[in-house]
Design a protein around this nucleic acid. Structure first.
Lengths: 345, 345
DNA sequence: CATTAAAATATTAACGATAATATTATGCGA
DNA sequence: TCGCATAATATTATCGTTAATATTTTAATG
């Protein structure tokens, strides 16, 4: 049986409370008593029961992380950064995946709240209004990581994806591409929405009408990028530039292009999004918008931490800057950006 | 303030116990009482306090997952599968990263035990004997995922990596490669150890002496693969085949080879390990040993679940079969393996 | 040496649930 | 209508902590 404070008390002759205070180094316990009790605890292999402590204190030092899909390398990195930051603040994370379903998200949030997490970091999907209401009435602090939800924009930590999507598209258009394909992300995700908006606005600014056939929705996975490009080639849809929702889609797409005999960047120029660690090591190192994933994760936890510490703190939308990294899948230079490094960019 | 059973009791006129039993559908509570109480709970927005429940029941429905580095796509997939399986059994996971340090591993295990997890899944590193002892005396069931520790082999769920490493190396040797480079993993990881052993034994079986210069230790990350190949090329170390510790290292290595002007597979044939989702979508689709990551994760949880359900159940080492996937970074066929599919292999 | 403040420890209550046991209410048969 | 089994509910104890309060011991002071 596990040894508890009670047993330490019995064995030592002190009361449970004194034992508890001794182990916590309370200053109203005699030094000699402390060392005696600590030694006994050591000998008896005492392990504190944090569940009991949590119940008593009404605080669990645990946050819930509601992730869409933790195996996606983008989220995986963000989550790692969250966990790192949490650990350094003596917090733990309960990780739940929703598989991008509002239903899963609801369940995840509910069970995490039941488990008395002190806060929540959520990578949300657009869902029913009921979910929104539920969030608004949540009894613990929460932040939305890298995505937003209508009416809850203040809870978001975002990147400047609209701007960057527009910039990428504008660069393509400025460099003579009239048929820029956008392999967009799923419609129930805010980043998808923002990036499509950037794509559209770049066109209207350039005075070029958007060809709706050139906006194709994918599920954001590599296979889907591959599949869609195959289909588009079969349909003989012409395009000379590809702006992908993320690097995974870009990789799948580039593979399909290669299989069909197209050269990158000569026949098709490609830009991805997220800038995964491996993207710059690809055969054609991939031009991509670098989202500072670690920073995003760290700031997410740290902001949440502030809200947990001070529940009255007001929520305000935060934006982290990303940066377009131009590499071998594009031929042009970024106007106004001279930060080109040698070697592996 | 959150509503508790006590408040439901006061409001309804029933005792706390009856309320508790009603909500749990105990059969010694009148049907009308149940529905009355349930409705009240609904109205008052009652949310059960699982921490209190856990304390009372001495069970948390939580397992600890001690991961080396959850941002590594290989682990990320395994962990996702663990979480999936856990969720379907009404379990949650507390995820802690160790950054491959024995120290971090010790701390992780300690804090998870204090948090009363019902079991542990650990991706361990070789460390001090003290850590081993600590594991052996653990009060909860635990399994080692994809790795082993000396003396705890029975707790492991492994893949046949020794066999596959030997197979890969033998294939290289049989196809005339006399200089097979092995970019090995870190020495404190069992898989590294096993794969090196396979590499060596393949040589001795073929009667070819091992050139120690051709076994190079990496940290298993993409950058390190790139860095080491650069260094080796500078040193003019000749090799015509590369067996990488994992796909990440292979990707980094291939990029370095390309930068130096080598062609794959004409100048250097490459085989990786793990078979990441994206590996078959690379420009040169990567030949790799496919570890069934989802299966590994699922079986890890399910075995642990059995041990948690029946603590007397004996531990026995489990092995999952992996499979060599030959793609475009190699030119030969796998002797005795005819499962070649069309399209993207 | 008595008095009293301060130091050290003990006692009691509480967190919110569940389990074991005790009590009360209900219905049925004779 | 009584007795008694059974159904329904209540009471008490408990999980392992920590906080608030109470008590005892020790040390300091005159």
């Amino acid at each position: 049986m596990r040894t508890s404070l009670k047993e330490l008390a019995k064995k030592s002759g002190y009361s449970v409370n004194t034992v508890s205070r001794a182990l916590r180094d309370a200053d109203d316990v005699k030094a000699s008593t402390k060392s005696l009790i600590k030694q006994l605890a050591e000998e008896m292999g005492y392990i504190p029961n944090v569940v009991a402590k949590n119940l008593r204190l009404g605080k669990t030092n645990t946050i819930g992380v509601v992730s869409a899909d933790s195996s996606n390398p983008y989220f995986a990195e963000v989550i790692l950064a969250i966990e790192d930051a949490a650990r350094s603040h003596d917090y733990h994370i309960l990780l739940v995946n929703t598989e991008e379903s509002p239903e899963g998200e609801r369940e995840a949030i509910d069970t995490l709240i039941e488990r008395q997490v002190d806060g929540l970091l959520i990578i949300p999907v657009f869902g029913e209004d009921a979910n929104l209401e539920r969030l608004k009435n949540l009894s613990v602090p929460f932040l939305l990581v890298g995505r937003w939800l209508p009416g809850l924009e203040d809870h978001s930590i975002l990147t400047d994806e609209y701007d960057k999507a527009k910039q990428v598209t504008s660069l393509f258009l400025a460099n003579g591409h009239t048929h820029v394909l956008h392999l967009a992300g799923p419609s129930f995700v805010s980043s998808s929405f923002d990036r499509i908006k950037g794509y559209r606005d770049a066109h209207s600014e350039a005075g070029i009408p958007v060809n709706e056939d050139l906006i194709v929705e994918t599920d954001g996975h590599i296979e889907d990028g591959h599949r869609h490009i195959n289909a588009l080639i079969r349909k003989e849809l012409p395009f000379t530039a590809l702006f992908a929702f993320n690097d995974l889609v870009a990789i799948g797409a580039m593979r399909a292009l290669k299989e069909a005999g197209y050269l990158i960047p000569q026949d098709v120029e490609v830009v991805g999004f997220d800038d995964l660690d491996l993207s710059r090591y690809l055969y054609n190192s991939l031009s991509s918008v670098r989202i500072p994933k670690q920073e995003l994760g760290r700031i997410a936890f740290e902001s949440l931490f502030e809200h947990m510490t001070d529940p009255k703190k007001l929520y305000r939308r935060q934006t982290i800057e990303s940066r377009l990294m131009l590499r071998e899948t594009t031929t042009f230079e970024n106007i106004g950006d001279s930060q080109i490094q040698g070697g592996i960019k």
